[in-house]
Structures are given as C-alpha cells and as structure tokens.
C-alpha cells in the first residue's frame, strides 16, 4: 500500500451529491407551497426513471452498477430536470427528458465525469425544442389544486385553459413584442415584487440552498458570482439605456431559472470550467447568453442554451486559463 495511508473521513461523491439534494430542498418547499405538490410527483417520476436508466446503461456497458447507482449523481440530474420542466408536463415527457439526460447526455459520453454537456440542460433543451407547447404550459400560481395537477401529469386530457398562466418571462416577452412599456407589463398578475408572482420565492429558496453549498464549500463562489454578474451587468447596461424597453437586472435574476442556474446548473463540476478564471468566464458567458436569449431569442428562457453553448467552450477555456503554479510565477518575489 502506498502513501498517503489516511483519507479524509466522511468524504465521498455520495456526500457531495447529498448536499446538493439537501440544498434543493428550500426551493422545492417553496415550489410546493406556491405552486402545488405536483412537482413532487414529477421529481419522483424523474428519480425512478433516472435510476432505472442508469442501472440499465451501466449493465449494458458492463460497469459496476452498485457504486455508481448509489453515488447520487443520477438523482441530482433527475431533480434538476424535474425542477426545470413545468410541473404539470405529462409523465412521459419527464421520462423522455430524463432518458435524454441520463442515457444521451451522460452515458453515451462515458458516464459520470466524462460528459461535456450538462445532462439536465441537454434534457431541457431537447424537450423545449421537441415539445414547445407542453414546455410552455406552466401552472398558474395558487390556482391549480393537487388533484388537477396529478390528473394533468398522469392523465391524458389536457384542459389547460385557466389552469396555466404566463410566466413572468413569457408575459414580459409578449408585452414587449406588443411594444408595451415594462412598467405597464408589470401591472399584470403574473408579476410579484421583482419577478414572477410566487416564483420569486422559489428562486429565493434556490438562493438559500446555494448559500448553503457555498458555506459547505461544495461549490466555489466563482460560478454563481460570475453568472449573476454576467446576467445582471448585461441587464443593467440595457436597462440603464432604456428602462421601459428592458426590464431591470433584479427582474432577470428573480425570474425563470436564474437562481437554479446560478447555484445548481453552472456549478456542475463535470461540465463547467475548472480553473478560477475559467469558471468566471464560463459562468459569465452563460449569464450573458441567457439574457440575450431571453431578450432577443424565440424562447422565453435562455439559461439552458447558455449552459450548452458554454459547455462547448470549456476545454478551450480550461486550457487557456491554467493558473501559474508555485515556483513558476515568473520572478514575483517579496
């Protein structure tokens, strides 16, 4: 046996993943409180599908099943997909999305640690491109009871009028397309204090969980900081020029998947840049692209596209941002 002969106690990939799941709980609680318990059903469907798919692929690939299945990474992907999709999508869409994430984005590239694209975001993008209508049907906050949500998820018929509501990002986009002023659009019931009515609490929940991850040093500050800065500064720039045409940075950060993206998506260690400077570039890029997609693109939310686009650049970013090491800083002496 070779040195070192000791290891840090209670240290494992499982523990890392467990912390991430734990950090998602405040956001999920806020979700259930504001939107309804349907999300829990989606999370359950996603989790079971993820574990099944993971086990199957591991078996097909002739890899050890137990150790990878229990590492928690598939569950994290499943939860993130469930939280990214509207909570009333039919069950089969959740299943398809998870299969795309686990089988396509993760295992076809070699499994955990090898995938260049964020599995949850790859799944989200595939779903929104293939099923744009279903993917835009978000439950109206506080108006859809659990039974209806369950029926929408499990049942076939989708009598959705009056059940779904425009999300804040949707309402903003539509309003701006009609040349309405930002302040006028904000009068709509879709809006709360800063972002979507009700949804902003969920964002706050993610923020809380993210701070927990920062405190436990599961994630480094570079990624969420740069994402928020990238999105926030871009939004500030345009907002400062024309506040009635471009909503405030606060609106952008409080809406859609901004907080989930900042603390749980761009922070995926496997698919994000790994050097300190690289992390800043990567996450800032995601934030900026997300803002542009939201503002000028055809989809209301752009975090997922930003992540996938920046994922492509990660190998280059990492290579070009290798920090100097001890003893090779080039004459920097006291």
């Amino acid at each position: 046996m070779t040195s070192p002969h000791i290891r840090l106690d209670n240290n494992s990939v499982q523990r890392v993943m467990l912390y991430v799941l734990l950090a998602l709980v405040p956001g999920i609680v806020a979700y259930v409180w504001n939107v309804g318990a349907g999300i829990l059903v989606n999370i359950a469907i996603a989790s079971v599908t993820a574990l099944g798919a993971e086990a199957l692929v591991l078996k097909l690939r002739n890899r050890p099943i137990a150790i990878t299945l229990t590492d928690g990474s598939a569950i994290v992907t499943a939860w993130l997909i469930a939280l990214a999709l509207p909570s009333i999508v039919p069950w089969w869409l959740t299943v398809i999305a998870v299969l795309i994430g686990i089988v396509g984005a993760k295992h076809l590239y070699g499994g955990i640690g090898q995938n260049p694209f964020n599995p949850a975001m790859a799944a989200y993008c595939a779903a929104i491109i293939a099923y744009p209508a279903l993917m835009s049907q978000w439950p109206a906050v506080g108006q859809v009871d659990f039974a209806t949500q369950l029926q929408l998820i499990l049942g076939g018929g989708r009598e959705i009028d009056g059940i779904t509501g425009a999300t804040a990002l949707d309402a903003m986009r539509t309003g701006l397309r009609k040349n309405e002023a930002v302040s006028a659009i904000f009068e709509s019931t879709a809006f709360g204090y800063a972002g979507g009515n009700g949804w902003e609490y969920i964002g706050a929940g993610y923020l809380l969980g993210g701070l927990f991850l920062l405190w436990r040093r599961i994630i480094s500050w570079h990624l969420p900081f740069a994402f928020i800065a990238g999105m926030g500064l871009t939004a500030t720039l345009f907002w400062a020029i024309s506040p009635e045409q471009y909503p405030s940075p606060l609106f952008h950060l409080a809406s859609g998947g901004a907080m989930l993206g900042a603390f749980f998506i761009v922070t995926d260690p496997v698919t994000s840049a790994s050097t300190p400077r690289g992390k800043l570039i990567f996450a800032a890029g995601v934030g900026i692209i997300a803002w542009f997609v939201r503002t000028f693109g055809v989809y209301p939310e752009g975090v997922a596209f930003g992540v996938l686009l920046m994922n492509i650049g990660v190998p280059l970013i990492d290579r070009k941002t290798q920090p100097p090491i001890f003893g090779r800083r080039g004459g920097k002496q006291p």
Binding site: S12, S73, G111, Q114, V270, S274, T275, I325
Partner: peptide, 19 residues
C-alpha cells in the same frame, strides 16, 4: 475508486497549486 467528477477539491488542497 470512483470516477473523477472534476470537483476541484484536489486543486484546492495542492500546496504547489497544480490541478
């Protein structure tokens, strides 16, 4: 041994600042 998830914990611990 499990697959590396590039979490970077090792880089934070390295006294030589290697990755």
């Amino acid at each position: 041994e499990q697959p590396c998830i590039r979490c970077g914990t090792c880089a934070r611990a390295c006294p030589i600042e290697l990755h």
